[in-house]
Simulated assay, not measured.
Amino acid sequence: MAAHPGGLTALAPSPAGTKSGAAVSVRGLIRSFGTKSVLDGVDLDIAPGEFVALLGPSGCGKSTLLRALAGLDHDVRGSGVISVPDRVSVVFQDSRLLPWDSVLGNVTLGVREHDAGARARKALAEVGLAGREKAWPHQLSGGEQQRVALARSLVREPQLLLADEPFGALDALTRIRMHGLLQDLVAAHRPAVLLVTHDVDEAIALADRIVVLDQGRIATVRPVPEPIRASADAAGHEALRRDLLAALGVEATAGH
């Protein structure tokens, strides 16, 4: 642990175990940039295989929390206890593919196992890109690039998948298709998932539980029952949507 000015300590994630049975356990997490406090004593647990969506206005600390779980915030001031699994993968809004490497090369990047190529081909088949192994990133659409990013995460068999607005730059139709793909992949691989999103409808469609972050603190937590997630309970879906929008300080309008 590295000490920082002001008496705060930056903690890297450690293997899960702080709370029995939890894939992710966060206690008293504080993160600051200069004099600005971004996370202010966050406590959060995510069970193995649970899909949690994180909502909140811009600047509330959503991406900061995700980066803390990923161990990508070494240069910020902070304290608290973070416990995560050994195998963690991150998917960002930008696919972050290396333009000078093939699709297969991007998926196997950093994978040391002897069967990396076979595992990458399997992952590409799972995301609907079988046969595109030799393609270059510039030859792919935005949706296809995000599929490659998902394959790159899956090839590592993550116990925790962190997704920072991975579909935010996609058009509406491609986004809906990616929702279905992500649901299928999560059902097959069963990682714990933390999805950062600004989209209330996306959160309801995908998550088992929705957490609303406001001014660096968890303000609201709502479970999403299966009938609501599948839109089989229209009244329950609309009630939850209005509740979440209210928590975000947005007034829902009829028909939206």
Rank of each mutant, 00 (worst) to 15 (best):
R242P: 00
A130R: 08
S231L: 13
T174G: 09
P158E: 09
L98N: 06
I82Q: 08
A230G: 01
H74S: 15
E157H: 13
E165C: 02
T197F: 11
L244D: 05
D171C: 02
D243R: 05
E126W: 00
V88T: 13
G28T: 05
E238G: 00
A68P: 01
E113N: 04
S20I: 05
G71F: 06
V148N: 04
V250N: 11
G216E: 10
G28I: 03
R242Q: 15
G168L: 02
L98Q: 06
P85N: 09
A16S: 15
L69R: 04
V111S: 03
T9L: 12
A219M: 08
A116S: 14
A205G: 05
T64C: 10
P225M: 06
T197Y: 11
A130N: 03
E226G: 04
E202P: 03
R175S: 09
G168W: 00
I228V: 15
L206T: 00
P191M: 12
A23T: 09
D101G: 00
Q215T: 13
S58F: 08
G110Y: 06
V42Y: 04
V42L: 10
A135H: 15
V212H: 09
E133H: 08
A219G: 11
T174S: 15
V26T: 13
I228H: 03
G61Q: 04
Q183V: 08
G117E: 14
L195K: 02
V90E: 00
S32D: 14
R77W: 00
D171V: 06
V211D: 03
V148F: 00
V193C: 11
A172T: 10
R67W: 00
T18E: 14
E113A: 15
L55G: 00
A3F: 01
F33W: 14
F51R: 13
T174Y: 08
R156E: 01
G216M: 08
A188K: 15
S89M: 07
F51M: 12
P15N: 07
S79E: 14
A120R: 10
L194R: 02
A192D: 12
H179V: 07
K19G: 12
L66C: 10
D199N: 15
I218C: 07
Q139M: 15
G143Y: 12
G117R: 13
E50P: 05
D243L: 08
G78M: 07
L65A: 11
F51I: 09
S63A: 10
A172E: 15
R132C: 10
A47I: 06
L185M: 13
G128R: 01
W100K: 04
A188R: 15
V196G: 04
D214H: 14
S89F: 03
G41T: 15
G143V: 04
P48H: 13
F33H: 14
R222C: 14
S58W: 12
L161E: 04
